[in-house]
Nucleic acid binder design. Structure first.
Lengths: 154, 154
DNA sequence: CCGAAATACTCAGTGCCCTGATCAATTCGT
DNA sequence: ACGAATTGATCAGGGCACTGAGTATTTCGG
């Protein structure tokens, strides 16, 4: 008894939303390449030669996860990884030809999937949907990366 | 080149939202009990004696994942698991005293966390936030579990 | 009553996601 | 120039999430 209603818990809703997206992605986009993997391909299509940490920052993956994702993309031959001659700590990443082809192909399918996924909402609602989620996510991230830690915990 | 803008991709947004929630949960609710684990405790507080599969259905976890979560809660002594005398396939689950205490304690903290998490939105916006996410998630789940598969793939 | 189908659960395998610890390379301060 | 701090990457470890295959139990059809 005294149980709460999870439909008013944003965390629960976020998890369900992501699961729903995962399933639709598998059905409509790819069973091989996952959504985070596509995000990495997309980041490298935009900015070839990024290092691992920066790619992770672009797509919102931490250092460990981005390492695993890159390693899988490397095994599949979609991403190339060479040590930065100027800074021996870094690996510079870029798409292979196959990686670029895959990125182009999935870009089309992803657009179609997004349409289906968001079909229950009107165009106006979709805009609100993006705005609200982004504001909540940005604010929560801001709590962790205080740009100006003035009066923190004051 | 030809990279897309991920901020208009609901899957990417959903992932970022969940990550943000995960971090805040860790900071404000518990480092031991996760949000899915709390969802299970909550389901059992509401309906003691559920079997594993049904709990999974209530909280949105598949058969494998719910088994792992229950096993962890069992190891922590928060959940009891006994074979159903009426149906030897089922395990009946209920909270231990410790499980009930934990559920009560986390319910309070979770409410506080949700307030912080949703603080960037007005009350009206929060209602819209819940509604939009739920509609999208429900619709996507509906694509998988067609209640009436009439004219499916027609 | 007995074999087939359905159901609850488990197990193996893959992938995402985080933290803390460790290592190597670079940069900074003196 | 040299030790200390910083930075990029890796590794170990824990947890979530899905699929496909396998086991045990119950239920259904004839």
């Amino acid at each position: 008894m005294a149980a709460v209603d999870l439909t008013t818990h944003p965390g629960h809703l976020a998890r369900r939303l992501q699961q729903a997206h995962y399933l639709l992605w598998n059905a409509m986009v790819s069973e091989e390449i996952t959504s985070p993997q596509f995000a990495v391909l997309n980041a490298l299509a935009d900015e070839p030669g990024l290092d691992q940490r920066t790619v992770g920052e672009r797509v919102g993956l931490d250092r460990s996860t981005i390492a695993e994702v890159i390693s899988r993309l490397g095994r599949r031959g979609l991403v190339d990884k060479v040590r930065d001659p100027r800074d021996g700590r870094r690996f510079l990443l870029r798409l292979t030809d196959d990686g670029e082809r895959t990125h182009r192909k999935l870009t089309v399918r992803t657009a179609r999937m997004n349409q289906v996924f968001l079909a229950p909402l009107s165009a106006a609602e979709q805009a609100v949907f993006f705005d609200l989620i982004q504001r909540v996510a940005d604010a929560a991230e801001g709590l962790r990366n205080p740009a100006e830690p003035v009066l923190a915990q004051g």
